[in-house]
């Protein structure tokens, strides 16, 4: 059963791949949230407990998701588009780099565990994308981009639910570099996402923009943003 190249003929087939995947996504979130909220007491109508609303919303999400997936069997709709991984990696990576360097960051404890969880999932996903044959049930069903996303998400969830306590925590400490480093860093990394990248222009823009932001946010607006504690002491 292929989603994007809908085969003709009789019987049930997915007419709207996008809605079908969207429904699965919603249902997945609903089930996941319900599992997370499972130990919360529901209480009674007279005295609503902490679990009542999360569980009902999760149930509604799951039901709506199933309805959406079912409706995809009856109405024609849009195909699933591929992703631009370049944008995702560089834009979000740039933001991440900013967060890590602006005030320094101690990756240890639970953050370290999440970091290694994501690392494990990313490595697994990369291995899957390299070694899985191009023609397989998963990619046929929801396309390559969402297939890989599904692999990533399920590794995360499985690892979290089954052997979370065994995951070793990453232990890295990033010094407090301040806006002087973080500003150009986010612009340079994010700038790599553009198709029509021009190095020189981006470099000049990064310096100008960071200076402007430092003047605007630090001095004109007086926000407590570290500029360069290691160099200037501010």
């Amino acid at each position: 059963m292929s989603v994007n190249s809908s085969q003709g003929g009789r019987g049930l087939r997915i007419r709207s791949p996008q809605d079908f995947a969207a429904g699965l996504f919603m249902a997945g979130i609903g089930v996941f949230a319900f599992v997370l909220a499972s130990d919360l007491p529901v209480g009674s109508l007279r005295q609503i407990g902490p679990g009542m609303l999360p569980k009902s919303f999760a149930t509604f999400c799951a039901i709506l998701g199933v309805m959406l997936s079912l409706s995809a069997l009856y109405y024609d709709g849009q195909r699933l588009e591929g992703w631009s991984w370049r944008g995702v990696i560089f834009v979000l990576g740039g933001a991440l780099a900013f967060g890590l360097t602006i005030r320094g960051f101690e990756i240890s404890g639970w953050i370290g565990k999440i970091a290694s969880l994501f690392l494990i999932a990313a490595i697994t996903t990369a291995l899957v994308s390299v070694f899985l044959p191009r023609e397989n049930v998963l990619f046929d069903l929801v396309g390559k981009s969402f297939g890989l996303l599904a692999v990533f998400a399920s590794v995360c969830v499985l690892a979290f639910l089954s052997f979370w306590s065994f995951i070793p925590a990453v232990n890295v400490s990033i010094p407090q570099l301040g806006l002087v480093v973080a500003g150009p860093l986010v612009i340079l990394v994010a700038g790599l996402a553009a198709d029509d990248l021009r190095w020189k222009e981006l470099l000049i823009f990064a310096l100008v923009m960071s200076t402007a932001c430092a003047l605007l946010f630090k001095y004109a607006l007086g926000l407590p943003i570290p500029l360069a504690p290691w160099l200037l002491g501010i």
Partner: peptide, 17 residues
């Protein structure tokens, strides 16, 4: 290509603040 890095640095500084 120049607009979105600018948007991004604004968002980052904003969210940090």
């Amino acid at each position: 290509r120049l607009m979105f890095p600018a948007i991004l640095i604004f968002c980052c500084i904003g969210i940090y603040s």
